[in-house]
Amino acid sequence: MTAGIETIIYPVKDLAGAKARFTGLLGLDPSMDEPSYVGYRVAGQDIGLDPHGHSKGMTGPVGHWHVDDIEGDVTTLLDAGAQTLQEIQDVGGGKRTAMVKDADGNVIGLIQPS
């Protein structure tokens, strides 16, 4: 089951510059501020800045579906012809993420909240 797209992650080359732009745009400080990820919580939506996104295959912002069974959903997507861009990984606090590229070249992100 999915809760829908609740997270958008932007790949960024200059994390400090992107953080300044998004802080100004959103009018609030990040809720998470680490060298590997800066995140904001705005109106029930998570906005993330990933300085390693390009190396993971992200070519632009990626919507991440919040799911209950990340293993099952990744398997379903792979069985339908998707390719793995990022294996399932724990990103802290029990939250797990993965990314695939579908047969049309679209990047699909998945998050299983803790």
Rank of each mutant, 00 (worst) to 15 (best):
residue 1 M to I: 03
residue 25 L to D: 09
residue 14 D to E: 10
residue 99 M to A: 09
residue 89 Q to S: 14
residue 89 Q to I: 10
residue 43 A to I: 04
residue 1 M to V: 08
residue 39 G to M: 14
residue 100 V to R: 01
residue 52 H to C: 00
residue 55 S to E: 15
residue 38 V to R: 07
residue 48 G to M: 08
residue 79 D to K: 12
residue 53 G to H: 10
residue 66 H to V: 02
residue 3 A to E: 12
residue 92 G to P: 01
residue 13 K to M: 07
residue 36 S to D: 14
residue 41 R to N: 14
residue 96 R to Y: 02
residue 73 D to T: 09
residue 18 A to P: 06
residue 6 E to P: 00
residue 113 P to R: 08
residue 86 Q to Y: 00
residue 61 P to W: 03
residue 112 Q to L: 05
residue 16 A to S: 14
residue 36 S to R: 13
residue 111 I to N: 04
residue 49 L to W: 01
residue 81 G to I: 06
residue 28 L to D: 02
residue 71 E to Y: 04
residue 3 A to N: 12
residue 79 D to I: 00
residue 41 R to D: 14
residue 78 L to Q: 07
residue 69 D to H: 13
residue 28 L to E: 14
residue 97 T to P: 00
residue 102 D to I: 02
residue 99 M to T: 14
residue 48 G to D: 02
residue 91 V to R: 08
residue 4 G to M: 10
residue 79 D to R: 12
residue 113 P to F: 10
residue 93 G to A: 09
residue 46 D to Y: 12
residue 9 I to P: 00
residue 70 I to P: 03
residue 97 T to V: 15
residue 91 V to L: 08
residue 64 H to K: 06
residue 39 G to Y: 03
residue 72 G to I: 09
residue 33 D to E: 14
residue 45 Q to E: 08
residue 41 R to Q: 13
residue 110 L to M: 11
residue 31 S to M: 10
residue 59 T to K: 11
residue 90 D to R: 07
residue 18 A to W: 05
residue 50 D to P: 08
residue 53 G to M: 09
